[in-house]
Simulated scan of single mutants.
Amino acid sequence: MATTTATHLAEATVPLQATSLTTGLAVRQAARNGTHHSPTFGLAPSYLQANLIVLPSRYASDFRILCARNPVPCPLIAESKSLGCWDAVKSWIDGVSDDGISRELDIRRDAPRYTVYKDSKLAKFECADIVEEWTEDHIAFFIGCSYSFESALCDAGLPPRHALLNCNVAMYRTNVPLCPAGVFTGGTYIVSMRPYKKKDIETVRDITRPYIATHGEPIAWGWDAVEKLGIKNIAEPDWGAAPLTMDGRSLSEVFGDDENVPVFWGCGVTPQEAVMRAGIEGTIMGHAPGHMLVLDCRDWDIVKQQ
């Protein structure tokens, strides 16, 4: 069987109407005009995807420190160019210019779906935009997303399971504490999980390791990692779709199987969870899990060829 390329995977696993969304700009425009509102896995192969968190300005400094102290689950790649700015960003990636991150941008409308918190409590889930909630006091932060290294996995013939099954990646709360920063205390890692054959895990680690700006290599793998991370039931993720075997069985039915080993990465939903744990005041916004902002920078902008 021929090796599965990222482009072929995108064509095979995303809805028919999304197969033309092959650039970051195309995905953003489709989200903005309401023609795409689904998770963004498989879209625009090789274009970076970003998790989004939007905060009142008084929390911005503490949040930057939180990201600096927790670079695996919270790799900061960009932020609003200025206070209240929703159409331009400042790059945090060495060698990538501000315009290189994204042009023709509307942070309020360019993710397929959003989440809104009021005083750290969920107020809206999977809403179409955050235009009404955005104020001149808000600052947006872009956090790297593990969807960004899936093109490389596909090109190596190791496509992630959730893409093959056309569902959102499974995400879980863990007991791994974040290093606190200012008001952000008590947070824990959120992880995304992709099952792989035991024999392929070292290759998967090698492929994803250079993607430091998008979580890098896994933080844990193996069936024993489920308990060590404090995950109560692998079949019941906190976000995303319940993980399945390729023949449609629950992953819990094959516990211990070397053909379906859970592999866990840091996840950019972590900052949203940290905000809720911190109990901060005001309106906070983010992407809905799996519904990323797709940018204009590419894989090779963050992983230099040897």
Rank of each mutant, 00 (worst) to 15 (best):
V269M: 11
A225H: 06
A30I: 02
K81L: 15
G42W: 01
T245V: 09
F41Q: 06
A50D: 02
R249M: 15
I234C: 12
E133V: 07
I201G: 06
I284R: 00
A78N: 06
M1P: 11
P71R: 12
L83Y: 03
V275F: 07
G34H: 10
V14I: 13
T23Q: 02
N70W: 05
L9W: 01
G286S: 15
N33M: 12
N51M: 09
R249W: 10
I219A: 02
G279N: 08
K232R: 11
L9N: 01
I77Q: 02
P159Y: 01
A140D: 01
G256S: 08
G290P: 03
T4S: 08
D238L: 13
R58S: 13
E236V: 04
Y196Q: 05
A278L: 04
Y147Q: 04
N166Y: 07
F142D: 01
E236P: 00
S252I: 03
S80G: 09
A235W: 06
E133S: 14
V263I: 13
I219M: 12
K81F: 14
P210R: 06
L55W: 04
A31R: 10
E253F: 07
R103E: 12
K121P: 12
D129H: 05
T174Q: 10
H291C: 15
L153P: 03
G157Y: 00
